[in-house]
Nucleic acid binder design. Sequence first.
DNA 1: GCGGCTTGCTTAATCGTTTAACCTTAGGCG
DNA 2: CGCCTAAGGTTAAACGATTAAGCAAGCCGC
Lengths: 321, 321
Amino acid sequence: MKPKLSDIARNLSVSSATVSLALSGKGRVSRDMVERVEAEARRIGYAPNQMGKALRTGRSTIIGLVLPDVGNPLFPRMARSIVQAAEDQGYGVLIADSHSGAQTQDRAVQRLVDFGSDGILVIPRKGTRIGSSDIPTAVIDAPTSPLNIVSADHHQGGALAVRHLREQGHQKILCLGGSSASLVQRTRVEGMQSAADGAEVTVHWMNESTPDIPALVRQGVTAIATTSDLMAVQVLTELGAAGLRVPQDVSLVGFDDLDVGQMIRPKLSTVGTSETEIGRRAIAGLIAMINGGERPKDDVVPMHLVQRETAIEIKPGGDEQ
Amino acid sequence: MKPKLSDIARNLSVSSATVSLALSGKGRVSRDMVERVEAEARRIGYAPNQMGKALRTGRSTIIGLVLPDVGNPLFPRMARSIVQAAEDQGYGVLIADSHSGAQTQDRAVQRLVDFGSDGILVIPRKGTRIGSSDIPTAVIDAPTSPLNIVSADHHQGGALAVRHLREQGHQKILCLGGSSASLVQRTRVEGMQSAADGAEVTVHWMNESTPDIPALVRQGVTAIATTSDLMAVQVLTELGAAGLRVPQDVSLVGFDDLDVGQMIRPKLSTVGTSETEIGRRAIAGLIAMINGGERPKDDVVPMHLVQRETAIEIKPGGDEQ
DNA sequence: GCGGCTTGCTTAATCGTTTAACCTTAGGCG
DNA sequence: CGCCTAAGGTTAAACGATTAAGCAAGCCGC
């Protein structure tokens, strides 16, 4: 079947210990021997059996990833960067879905532990906290969240969105949050408010009440900032159906830089995160913990503004109807 | 540390062979013994060490999943159903990303194999084919694709979309495909054409040329069918910017039933797949192969129409400008 | 010339589980 | 009563890798 360590040993008439030592570069092995072992390993296409290795070392080089429910549309990019980062460090990523319910989330963690994961990375569902387990666990959420290891700077991102609108002269800004139960979204909204700089910024939570957006625009709102691109698309189409134009009648900025933002006309201005960076740092931190390091300090990665077509300078004197 | 099999054995003063046999229900063990073992296992919270088990049995109970690039927006649901189905059968899911390039795809497969996966499930990038490896491999693509095991009935789905429009009286239908390089999308378009039933169905591939959609509508097109919700959203917003109304001026139906379809106003009529069903069957088939079964025959799961607000009866006599 | 150090390799134990083969006891039966 | 069988265990050998400990040979210095 698949070539094993002892095949190399037999072919070279040495002990398997020597081969192992040679390949790992750990023990005292002659330079010559190392080369011969490596050559033979390549020749027969040797790849170490992870199970044997894991059993002996107690390390599976597998990281468990617990995903929030599918609803989160920026999960794919997140997952991708995490897998990529893990791969670069030689780790595999085992995934579990925590569908709905916080209790299932803990079960998912448990399953991953049972499979021998060396560490667990959790992107929690909004409003849940994860019970700490006995193996290294890291969370990607927000700085105030327990076990958090890295997060996007949602506060700064929110500020970025509103500051952009302020710079364009907007004085009456509507700020639309999806769910006030989400820590991330609350933080984004707080960031938005923090950049008000004298402008009138009113907040609406979609899970609490559904504002009549076209009406608000007719009452003088000149710009809308949402906490998600999906909501921005909803707003855009709703305004379109009501005969209002973006960005001529009202400016709009989204959040998350989803693909859909580039598809719609006009293209959506939005605030983006570097998922790659977050994934990389989360994995780096987690692996550090696995290797006996201390839990790294919270790491916050900044967001950036993506200027496209939905937010423009307010037309002079057009702010009062 | 973690309780192991031998802990149970010691506590009960029996051999670990007995414990193993009792837990698996395989050998000749007295009813009484089985119960005592199970009780003790629960008491100390025993969970078998997957590495030890895998090493001995040659089965890791891990399935490798190779994902296409992130672009595919229905991937999250797919991944979820696959993970769920695997979990139900006691399997873990190890993921690898095949970013871009077919070569990377094979490397991803190799990585998963090296990690000890018992089988590999691939959702290929459009236009790539995967090299068969030495372990059971299944593909979710289209019936004509090699190694394919299960797929959505894209042809029937396409037919469903156009038939729906035909039933509403539409005679001039524009059919919008994303990329003619994608087997899936070609199949959808073929399905659409097959349901023309005498109507005029013209096809445009977005990767080849960008049609002036508002112009086409003014020339008499009364309905548009796209091969993806994302494109439908693009069309919808483009029409909106041009002052045309959906569905009053033109009907629209998308594909994939993405979340964004429910966010936009009006809500998007579309054709949906049962990702759950596909995931379930793919995993079931793959596990059957792992257990020595033959490669199951291609399995095709039907799509369904999701009627929402963007496709309505054509207004009588409004079909000619 | 001999104890001690270094070098380079080998021996063998070990990780936790499974499972073929064996052993012991007891019951059935002619 | 003794033989055969079955039931219910146990022993021990794997699976494939790592690694502490050991050992032989060579070299050094005094």
